[in-house]
């Protein structure tokens, strides 16, 4: 039997902080470069993603989160901004393998194969909201905690061995 199109593995060691406000100020406070529209900028273990014109998501190692929340809150004090720890609200999966783009293309109305590096796409996978971006060897997918089991299930279903999208 052929290999699965991609390996679907849950990622549990990430912290995430939702940031609303002026994006330049947020990037400043986070000590990161401001991401371009729909971009995700990575600096060492941290990434800062553009979520909307007034929202960014800071992704970082989980243990650093409480401290980062505090630092960001402090740094943005006095500005109109909102800092919220959303680490526990998320379910994250890595989709790694030669058929990773096929797996994404089965679930999201997105041209997965053409998705550039450093671009974060917020969309839907089957019936749940997700955000997707390229990582080494595949894609990372963030969904919501409550539907994490569902997200894992549909990802695994889409990765069945022998079901690649190449014409046969």
């Amino acid at each position: 039997m052929a290999e699965h199109l991609a390996r679907i593995s849950p990622v549990t060691d990430l912290g995430m902080i939702a940031l609303r406000g002026d994006l330049a100020a947020i990037a400043d406070a986070a000590g990161m470069a401001a991401p371009d529209r729909t971009g995700i900028a990575t600096d060492g273990p941290r990434s800062l993603a553009w979520m909307s014109p007034d929202e960014a998501l800071l992704i970082l190692p989980a243990p650093q989160t409480p401290e980062a929340v505090e630092a960001l809150t402090l740094a943005l004090d006095g500005q109109h901004a909102l800092v919220a720890d959303v680490s526990d609200a998320r379910a994250v999966f890595d989709v790694i393998g030669p058929g990773a783009a096929d797996v994404i293309a089965k679930l999201a109305p997105v041209d997965a194969a053409a998705m550039p590096q450093g671009h974060l796409r917020r969309t839907r996978m089957a019936q749940v909201a997700t955000a997707i971006w390229r990582i080494e060897g595949g894609f990372r997918v963030i969904g919501f905690r409550s539907t994490g089991d569902y997200l894992g299930l549909i990802l695994r279903n889409a990765a069945i061995a022998g079901s690649g999208l190449a014409p046969r």
């Binding site: 529209r37 729909t38 553009w50 909307s52 014109p53 109305p109 796409r121 917020r122 969309t123 839907r124």
Partner: peptide, 12 residues
């Protein structure tokens, strides 16, 4: 117009 994404109806 906010993010430049060509979204389909199911995303809207």
């Amino acid at each position: 117009p906010h993010c430049g994404i060509q979204a389909e109806e199911t995303e809207l």
